[in-house]
Design a protein around this nucleic acid. Sequence first.
DNA 1: TCTGTTTTCGCCTGTTGGTCGAAAACAGGT
DNA 2: ACCTGTTTTCGACCAACAGGCGAAAACAGA
Lengths: 238, 238
Amino acid sequence: MLAAVLQIRAGTLQVLLWQRAQEPDSGRWALPGGRLGDDEDVEASVRRQLAEKVDVRDVTHVEQIAVFSAPHRVPDVRLVATAFLGLVPSDADPAVPPDTAWHPVARLPDTAFDHAEIIRDARDRLRAKLSYTNLGFALAPRVFTISALRELYVAALGHGVSATNLQRILTRRKLLVPTGGTALPGPSGGRPAAEFRFTDRALKVTDAFAVLRPPPGPGAAGCGVGDSPGGGTPIPVP
Amino acid sequence: MLAAVLQIRAGTLQVLLWQRAQEPDSGRWALPGGRLGDDEDVEASVRRQLAEKVDVRDVTHVEQIAVFSAPHRVPDVRLVATAFLGLVPSDADPAVPPDTAWHPVARLPDTAFDHAEIIRDARDRLRAKLSYTNLGFALAPRVFTISALRELYVAALGHGVSATNLQRILTRRKLLVPTGGTALPGPSGGRPAAEFRFTDRALKVTDAFAVLRPPPGPGAAGCGVGDSPGGGTPIPVP
DNA sequence: TCTGTTTTCGCCTGTTGGTCGAAAACAGGT
DNA sequence: ACCTGTTTTCGACCAACAGGCGAAAACAGA
């Protein structure tokens, strides 16, 4: 059970790490985690482990990344880890224990074991899902301006993003709605920005990202194991 | 370690199941699997387990689905399973042990434990990845006609697919190339179909499925942890 | 009132997915 | 040989969407 908790801090994608005090890999930075309890599943376990490091209420999204199980990924003992991605919105600043700190994903310190690889996978998962889900909600405050959201996307994706395009895509997908309010202009003036929020604060996959989709049938979909998800012709009868 | 091995058989998506002879859940059908060995990672372990059920050379793709860890998913013992998706091309017909058989995913028999849920997740993963990867290569024979490939997609996706559209999408993405040869016409005549094959027989994600993609910079990409994957402006300097 | 700044909106463009129908290429029967 | 039925292939058309650009809107400060 390991968690790569990511947050945009100071315009940079950062990960919460913990400095080991004991061998092996003493002094190196590791992901927070722990062992699976008897009466919990892996996700509950991760949330419990994280509660010791950060305020759980700040963690807006948790999802499995993969199992890491190379025979000697940790010296001396056989340890299989289920890795998770956790996200914290940019306006939260949870108190962390003295041995833990945030580090930019782009410039990691000496990391323990295979944790650098796990962090890379978590970052890649985040980047991919920003494209075809509403996962931005987990990085952003409840309400925000398009410029602020754009900076979050830039930090997470690692490349420039057009504010115009970002707004259009998210609103066309009905993921974004204006609150009606406006933010105060900056110290150098400028038109006050409109405030927005995400419509849902739970993961939702954009339906139209799938290619070869079924024709848009007029609703009426059962939900058995073999059914097609989005209506459409169940199968052309021969 | 559990594997949902899927194959299109007789125009239907089927899964390889194994009938339990012992309690618990005796008589019910279960996914093949086993325990992780000391000198292998989970993927190697799954391939080893599968070797007892089917010829490994027939398995064209294996990938992790998720960890299933509900406390009492298996009665009496605490068992955490890493679930896998395995794919077998439609032209293979591996010999299977007497207690195992293929079953249509749409009409499962009585399944053991939480295996029905795992099969559903595996099926959904396959369906999703058919959209934005070349994963079709794992379901299809080495060479095939568009009509044959269309039938595979129909069976896997559970809804109709246009042959024209399928061909255009796959060729535009450079996933499909004509072999030059043609197949024999059917008994009722008809124009002989051109034969095709997949360019790669390893998983490749379509690069352009990502939205908010970076501007197409003229190549030159480093590969550090913080780098952007596809070239493009690393970040607009403030 | 004028200038500089930031946001917002509309317009244009190229690409892609989806559909349809005509043309091509075969087998079999007359 | 010719016609019919069948299957495949290809081109044309349409709609939706991502991406980019510049003008207009709305503010602060001089």
